[in-house]
Design a binder for these strands. Structure first.
Lengths: 292, 292
DNA sequence: GATCTGTCTATTGTCGATAAAAGACAAATA
DNA sequence: TATTTGTCTTTTATCGACAATAGACAGATC
């Protein structure tokens, strides 16, 4: 096969979700915009919906015939794009400890294990190299530098420089800037999660990313914003991996975020710096604890 | 062809340089270490040297038969690796102004124009994307963000943060650290070039990179050191492109470097910061001038 | 006994081919 | 007249294949 049709399958699944709530579907361009795919894909989805008897489709008339059931959905394994599959698989290896620093990475072997072609692996490794965890020896193999203490310290050093700067810049955003509204929304989610912390503490990871990215964006500097990708991926997988004391840890981080948000609202540089430093310090400690 | 033999050709050319100075060649492993290639390539080089009558090769005996002439060398176009070719070609497009911000980048078209396969182009674009000049729309094209004023400002902002920090760290390196010797060597080259500035002002570009990279390394932070790649590539091509007042500009930068080096030697944080800021300021101005 | 060479295998770099997905344009419809 | 649909072309994502290069191992040589 030349190209996986994951875009189609994922769009199809998301379209089924829409079907659960409406009696008919909108026009092709509108549907395309909703699902974030091209009309070509929309038509393929509609075609399949008709085929399995979910939809009567004739030009502009798209009538839902029955509600979708679980069996109508494509399995989730088939909707993940190649890069998602390989990233997860690769990070698991690194974080699960099966991978020692200094180890060689073999493209072909990796490709076989994940069940994809070498091109995919190569492109992934190139993209991934910017996270500083691997390094290429030209005309030869990649070397795993490993998720070490040094890595974590170097990462957090730059993070702290950038975030302190971004937080300071946040205070200078004009009052009508969309970031303030987003900050309100984020704060509300914080309170929601805290109110039901025992059940929802795992929602923190995603919220954490959303909040810090918002702060970094205030720098209006693409290099600072892009660097947040590195932090996000490390913390994302770190949260998935290290679940010890997760409830307590996340509760504490949520409280720190609330203090940080309040400081941002105050627009007082000193308060902002204090709250930011306080939170970054515990984030660093959490990360370091998981290494040794 | 599956793979270019540029490694072989480049090693061959560098081996010819060695031949100009000796009457016989060392063992295969030693030669490999000198040229930075594997024994396989060394043997291919030796084989060719024998073929063209430059060398009598029998096991350990490798006697030079005649001095190489210009015609023995492979043309330099053939010794550049694919990534070098494509990088140069691509940067020329961006900097020469033929490329407007917002423009779409077509992989196939680019590949045809440069005369390589699409895989090479894709991998290059992925690697290149970390420089912040292009951006990918998934399942669709790349977008050129362009070498704009905003780009230059964002780049120099981060550069200044990192370099000030690295310069401060430099002062704390132990006295016997190899960096101090390298600093001496770099200073000597500065004086050499200044003494013959009219003929050698174009040597500045390479020296500039060597000096600033040394400073950045003092941070002992891979993210800071890696970021220097972005700066290096931009300034490298910028120097090649914008030759107006190059002599004067480089002479000034050389003087600033000397003051900066003296400040580093003094280990006085305030002097270092002053000299560093002074130089970074004029570097930024030079870069900005070339844009508008 | 250490290093070198001959030989062989393993791995990377690059290509062209092909299905999926995006996107352009004109005719149809409301 | 503004959308929508039908049809067609262009472009990307992914694969497998193969030459260049790296690297391993045993026998040869100093």
């Amino acid at each position: 096969m030349a190209k996986q049709n994951t875009v189609f399958k994922d769009a199809f699944n998301r379209c089924l979700k829409l079907l659960e709530q409406t009696a008919s579907l909108p026009s092709e361009p509108e549907l395309g915009a909703t699902l974030g795919v091209s009309r070509t894909t929309v038509r393929a989805v509609l075609g399949r919906l008709e085929e399995v008897g979910l939809l009567a489709w004739d030009k502009r008339r798209k009538i839902v015939l029955r509600k979708p059931v679980a069996a109508d959905y494509f399995p989730t394994e088939e909707t993940d794009s190649l890069s998602e599959i390989i990233e997860r698989s690769f990070m698991r290896r690194i974080l699960d400890g099966g991978a020692q620093p200094g180890m060689q990475i073999n493209e072909l072997e990796l490709a076989r294990e994940i069940g994809i072609g070498t091109t995919g692996v190569r492109e992934f490794l190139i993209r991934f190299s910017r996270f500083g965890l691997i390094e290429k020896r030209p005309n030869s193999h990649w070397v795993l530098k490993g998720f070490t203490r040094e890595f974590a310290l170097e990462l957090t050093e730059v993070r702290e420089i950038f975030e302190l700067r971004s937080a300071a810049a946040f205070a200078h955003l004009p009052k009508d800037h969309a970031a303030w509204q987003e900050l309100d929304a984020i704060e509300a989610v914080h309170r929601d999660i805290l109110a039901d912390i025992d059940n929802r503490y795992l929602d923190f990871s995603e919220l954490d990313e959303r909040f810090h990215l918002l702060v970094h964006r205030a720098s209006r500097n693409r290099f600072i914003v892009d660097f947040y990708d590195v932090i996000a991926i490390v913390f994302h997988y770190h949260y998935q991996w290290n679940k010890t004391n997760a409830r307590q840890r996340n509760a504490r981080a949520l409280e720190e975020h609330l203090a940080y948000i309040a400081a941002l609202r105050s627009r007082d540089p000193i308060e902002i710096e204090l709250a930011c430093r306080q939170h970054l310090k515990s984030a660093r400690e959490t990360l370091l604890q998981s290494i040794n």
